[in-house]
Design a protein around this nucleic acid. Sequence first.
DNA 1: TATGAATGAGTTTTCATTCAT
DNA 2: GATGAATGAAAACTCATTCAT
Lengths: 234, 234, 234, 234
Amino acid sequence: MPQRSPRRQVSRLPPERRIADIMTAARAIFAEKGYTEHVISEIAERAGVVEGTIYRFFANKNDLLQQVAEAWFQEMMDQSAANFAAIRGEWNALHFVIFHTLEAIRRDPGLTRLMLYELRPEPEHRDSRLYALHHDYTGRLCAIVRDGMARGVFRPDADPELARDIAFGAIEMRTWSYLHHKSSFEPVPLAREITDMLYAGLLPRTAPVPQDETLRRLEAVSLRLERLADQGEG
Amino acid sequence: MPQRSPRRQVSRLPPERRIADIMTAARAIFAEKGYTEHVISEIAERAGVVEGTIYRFFANKNDLLQQVAEAWFQEMMDQSAANFAAIRGEWNALHFVIFHTLEAIRRDPGLTRLMLYELRPEPEHRDSRLYALHHDYTGRLCAIVRDGMARGVFRPDADPELARDIAFGAIEMRTWSYLHHKSSFEPVPLAREITDMLYAGLLPRTAPVPQDETLRRLEAVSLRLERLADQGEG
Amino acid sequence: MPQRSPRRQVSRLPPERRIADIMTAARAIFAEKGYTEHVISEIAERAGVVEGTIYRFFANKNDLLQQVAEAWFQEMMDQSAANFAAIRGEWNALHFVIFHTLEAIRRDPGLTRLMLYELRPEPEHRDSRLYALHHDYTGRLCAIVRDGMARGVFRPDADPELARDIAFGAIEMRTWSYLHHKSSFEPVPLAREITDMLYAGLLPRTAPVPQDETLRRLEAVSLRLERLADQGEG
Amino acid sequence: MPQRSPRRQVSRLPPERRIADIMTAARAIFAEKGYTEHVISEIAERAGVVEGTIYRFFANKNDLLQQVAEAWFQEMMDQSAANFAAIRGEWNALHFVIFHTLEAIRRDPGLTRLMLYELRPEPEHRDSRLYALHHDYTGRLCAIVRDGMARGVFRPDADPELARDIAFGAIEMRTWSYLHHKSSFEPVPLAREITDMLYAGLLPRTAPVPQDETLRRLEAVSLRLERLADQGEG
DNA sequence: TATGAATGAGTTTTCATTCAT
DNA sequence: GATGAATGAAAACTCATTCAT
């Protein structure tokens, strides 16, 4: 698709405005196209600029990707943070985080795909600002667990990090199905179910959940008793 | 009439051998390089052939990717299936699946990355043989949950699919850290913790949580001990 | 389409038989596929041999093409030559050649395409045996014209070569439509029409049909001559 | 971060100019090389650009081929259309079309080859703009025949399409010889001969067919008379 | 003699990035 | 500051031909 365009009307805009235009266009493209299919020239076209202009404001393609994702993520965090303060109770708090995450994914599957497929796999991802943001966001769930432990609602040996991984891991698995258009994606029941499972796993064990160590000792003892018993019978 | 450069030493191998060489080379490259950086020419070089040779045995690059992943996955499944039959008890069964998955990931992180980053994102992934294999594999966990529900160990309203997503979602989250070399990856404690959380979430909500196999044996033993004691008294 | 075939049963056939098999297969492929789409490996497969075997009997791909075309052409010539001797009369003779050519094209459009698209464009075509054969074949038409001229049926200044080009040129134009599946191809009426046109062009001119440019000049001249005459009289 | 080799001197041209350069280069290559031997890289080199540049202006190789052929054809049509209106008389009109076609071929044999060998064989040729142009062009001859039929000059059962095929078929046969450098190619006598043959085939069957010879003698006579007359006047 | 695995030189095409204008 | 033409490096894939077995 060669384009022989007549020289474009040069419009001189304030940089912030240009940057905003470009990021809006990029976000739209990212939301539509998947899997490395987005092309700088297309973003430029939609933003009403040429490729070269993008490089005045962004170091390279990846920088643009990062910045778009960051801005989007920040938005999402701001949105949910507003209501977060008012939540009372551990279950409610966990549910709030999980539900809002699911809602955000449902709203913007394309941007979720951008993060999961393109940004996270990069080797430098862990050092990026985006990772830091994401880590902060998911860290809220850790904080809730930690609070619950402090308040005695959750068992003292719970692992907040694992709780985080369970919640967001489950969310992500469902997201794959959604992105592949293979399953519906209903935040309401899903959030409830995930929260229930997580919550139950964090509560104090009301009955002894035997620990392997102990079990193994008991097993050893019973084995000896069995032998003893056998001998006693024999 | 073309005879430009001296032909390299042609070594003639049986196809199976050549295919094995290529797949080994590809697997090695996949394990090292990440994020779409693997190139046919590099695989060819490492396999000691020219690019054209690869196309004798594989329809295209993606076909090679798929076949390598399938073979690897099959290996892993065969390995763990061998011991699976002997497992007794829900906790043990869940633990077995989770632990073996973690172990396989620890062994071959590069191939895990291949699956997560490159194969899964593809639009046709859901229709691939690889997906079917993977679905079968993770389905074992669903089956365990279903059995537990049937036997009354797990609550009747548990969701086997959700259990699967929680277990493998949590595993995957940890895998990311591992792949980014940002955290250690210890299957032993991790499997225990994930299993515990999952197990707790599946139990009847208020009831105590016995580990049945062991308990049953303990009960049996104590019964016999009581009898012994009775006899001793008699 | 990679083929991992088990080692083929080595069958040792007399060379003539092998050559015949290969040529039959090649002819079939050429008849089906068009425009440089035929591939040695495919011909080999259909002939029940491997690529290497073909190169034992044919110097290269082009040699195979040539030989197939030659054999086919020879067949066609033998076929029509059989009946040719019996023809009486110029119109009948011309019609015979034209009709048989059209019939052959209708029977084997694929092989016609082979000749028109692939063989004739080659720079060396004029030096090939195939060209010689073809030239011989079309030469029959020249001979008919020459005979007709000698017998006084055709005008003495007719050009046999041009007659040939007109007949076979018209045939070829129609063949293109046929090959593109854009028009039906009916040898019977077509042969009659082409023959009629050609025949009419070859007959003696019975009266002068003035060419108007010239006529105009002749008129002008005669006008002046009349004036001159008037003056001479005056 | 890539900056491997020193960038060649970038010369910045207006697109029309660059496109013209590329098309000129392509036309030159097509005129020289035959039979699918022309390669994008060579065209690029001759145009003084790199391959990528060509793809800025042309979607793919075939697009370039088509556009070059179209432009060339359009030129030729424009050229001959200019004088066409003034022609009077069927013979002259037929002759005009045939002669101009031959002239165009003589001027640009390479581009003729491009059309005959490469473009026409393509399966989609019949749907191309080039085909439409060509069909329009050759359609002029049909129109002439139709006019002649309407005016009673040609026999009422003449077939304009067949007339077209005869004229352009004969032209094409001669073109082959020319392309293979095996025969001279003289538009003047050739046009006259083809026109004569065609014209004769179109006249009412019994009508007198003027013989060139006679006319030429008349012309010679009138010339001498003119000179005589001039002398008589002087 | 037949096999068919292996070669390797191409060829088209893509696209992030640069820099003359 | 903006433009957008031009770059150039690669990458996937093809296939006629060779030659060790």
